[in-house]
Design a protein around this nucleic acid. Structure first.
Lengths: 163, 163
DNA sequence: GGATATTGGTTCATACCATGTACTTAAATG
DNA sequence: CATTTAAGTACATGGTATGAACCAATATCC
């Protein structure tokens, strides 16, 4: 009897797990899709390709970035960075100057136009996430964030198991 | 005094909101990045482009899909579907037959090879999400899912405000 | 000091994602 | 039966991304 009990129990947890994992999969997919739509929206609104927008947001308080640094931060090949920078230079959003100490290096910096766009863009996404938070009750906000924190950590962990 | 009290209160909630929204932004970004890595990984593992994998997973219990239906489900232009189907046909994962009732329509169906790949792929992603759930305590699982549910709903709501 | 790595960046070929327009053929409709 | 509508394809265009080959400049090591 204990045996059948155990079977029944593990069966029902299996069913639950199955149901929950399907749900999880769907939810994550929808969240991702929503984010993709958002970046596409911003790209169209600003009439700047997504990769260039991402690059524009890299200059936090840094005055200058190098192509190599951008390549690492964006996690793309350095040849890709050349293209992205070219696009931004053509739009007069960044400009590159030669490093005075090392002639190989080019320092990429925001123009004033670039600064403005960057600030605008940052304000919009900040606003967006604040609106998102305001959809929750104040007590819920902490919970959502800590949930996402655990989720992120777990995804990282599962990713590392994955081969 | 009440006035300063109020100011102090709203100031501190503003600071909290600011902090939380930044955190939220970072966390969502990391989750999205993680998902992107996963799909890229699967695409490389199976040596099939991401869009084709997505298409392959569309045949749940359906015997046949049409290009138009696929276009709607994948949310891409129909000309894009032609390309995706071509790729899958070349890999002998799907085949298209003429609709017996309407000569305009082509019915796209999985080959047996396609069925196998599709099942494999589904098993892997299911397994992945189960592993992800198992990273949590049983009581936490429900909470994470309901958190994501609220998040998704809120993102949808904010998206609709967005113009 | 000069030969030999190493590094930063660009160019080019390639492949994938995605759209929109124009076009063909076939069905629906009036 | 003529016209409109629908399904699918072809093609031009543009964005994302990589990797190999390459050039120029700096570092390194006898």
């Amino acid at each position: 009897m204990l045996h059948t009990m155990n079977n029944r129990e593990s069966d029902s947890t299996d069913v639950l797990l199955e149901y929950q994992s399907q749900k999880l999969q769907d939810l994550i997919e929808e969240v991702v899709r929503c984010c993709k739509e958002r970046t596409l929206f911003l790209s169209k609104k600003f009439d700047i390709p997504e990769a260039e927008l991402r690059c524009l947001m890299l200059f936090g308080e840094e005055r200058y970035l190098t192509a190599k640094g951008i390549s690492q931060k964006l996690d793309v090949a350095k040849s890709r960075v050349t293209k992205i920078i070219n696009g931004l230079v053509q739009k007069r959003l960044v400009e590159s100057i030669d490093d005075p100490k090392d002639a190989r290096i080019k320092l990429i910096g925001l123009t004033s136009k670039g600064h403005k766009k960057s600030r605008q863009l940052g304000d919009i996404t900040k606003d967006l996430h604040q609106k998102l938070l305001l959809e929750f009750e104040p007590e819920q906000r902490k919970m959502v964030i800590s949930c996402l924190e655990i989720l992120r950590t777990s995804m990282e962990a599962v990713k590392n198991q994955m081969v």
